[in-house]
């Protein structure tokens, strides 16, 4: 998603500092503000019940989520999400490394994995409910069962594609197995692994929401569905807004971690571009 941010640095010269700051703010904020105002005007004129104006939603947001609901609904959701993501990363990288390094294991599992990852993850919610009941464990398992695939498959590919000269270098200097794993195999696979984690984050968030809409009596997903069933429109919108914020937060946090972990990778690309 940062894909086209790099292109935005256009020519900027011969302008005063003031107008430059104004332009710097106008671009990122202009359209959102314009749309919000437009929405507000249309909502108050048209009096559609499904589209309350932004101020009403903001007020509903404050009343709904600031206070006990944060502890009762938001925190449990985020905890399950965090646990699910963490478990997916650990399992995906560990299993992916083992499979990626072992040719026969890869041949053995490839068709099976190809099938398993093609199952739409939300379909596993009813299965998990059957096997584990309506519990927190079930929700974490559901998140992992969907989010682990992009990480697992990308790790396998990344580990398998370690450069032959780099491997030969390690061999010629008799670098030990653990050092090879830590200083060669995992770093070499890290761009692929991070791409997998990025995909896994959005899958995990979707599964968190659905598992709660489907089988829960608390959590963000449950709350939003509850508001909808009771025609609490502004509250429902505030829930959608909150989920959006969680999504944005995840994307930003990932971006920060990624930039740190893959500093060398971005550095090379930058050098190559010049």
């Amino acid at each position: 998603m940062t894909a086209y941010t790099g292109r935005i640095a256009a020519t900027r010269r011969g302008r005063t500092v003031g107008s430059r700051i104004a332009a710097g703010l106008a671009y990122p904020l202009g359209l959102p503000i314009l749309l919000l105002v437009l929405w507000g005007v249309v909502a108050t004129r048209a009096t559609s019940t499904f589209f309350p104006d932004p101020l009403t939603i903001a007020e509903a947001f404050r009343q709904t989520w600031v206070g006990p609901a944060f502890v009762e609904d938001v925190l449990p959701s985020l905890t399950r999400l965090g646990l699910g993501i963490a478990a997916s990363i650990v399992v995906g990288i560990a299993a992916g490394t083992v499979i990626g390094l072992t040719q026969w294991l890869r041949d053995l599992l490839e068709p099976l994995l190809e099938f398993l990852r093609a199952i739409p993850p939300p379909v596993l919610i009813p299965v998990a409910m059957l096997l584990l009941g309506i519990t927190d464990t079930m929700k974490v398992v559901v998140i992992v069962s969907g989010a682990v695939w992009p990480i697992l498959l990308n790790t396998i590919e990344g580990v398998r594609g370690t450069d032959s000269v780099m491997k030969e270098t390690a061999r010629s200097f008799q670098v030990s197995w653990w050092e090879r794993l830590w200083f060669l195999v995992l770093p070499a696979a890290s761009p692929r692994i991070m791409a997998g984690v990025r995909q896994a984050l959005s899958v995990a968030l979707i599964l968190m929401v659905i598992s709660e809409m489907f089988a829960s009596s608390s959590g963000l997903g449950y709350r939003i569905a509850y508001f909808q069933r009771n025609y609490l429109i502004a509250e429902m919108w505030s829930g959608i807004l909150l989920l959006g914020l969680v999504g944005v937060f995840l994307a930003v946090a990932f971006g920060l971690v990624e930039r740190r972990v893959l500093r060398w990778y971005h550095g090379i690309r930058e050098v190559n571009r010049v």
Binding site: D163, M166, S172, F173, F183, P187, A188, W264
Partner: peptide, 17 residues
Amino acid sequence: AMAVVFQEYGRSLYPWL
């Protein structure tokens, strides 16, 4: 007792180190 210097330095040095 032996050390190798490969032709493809770009692939023999580890870019993350």
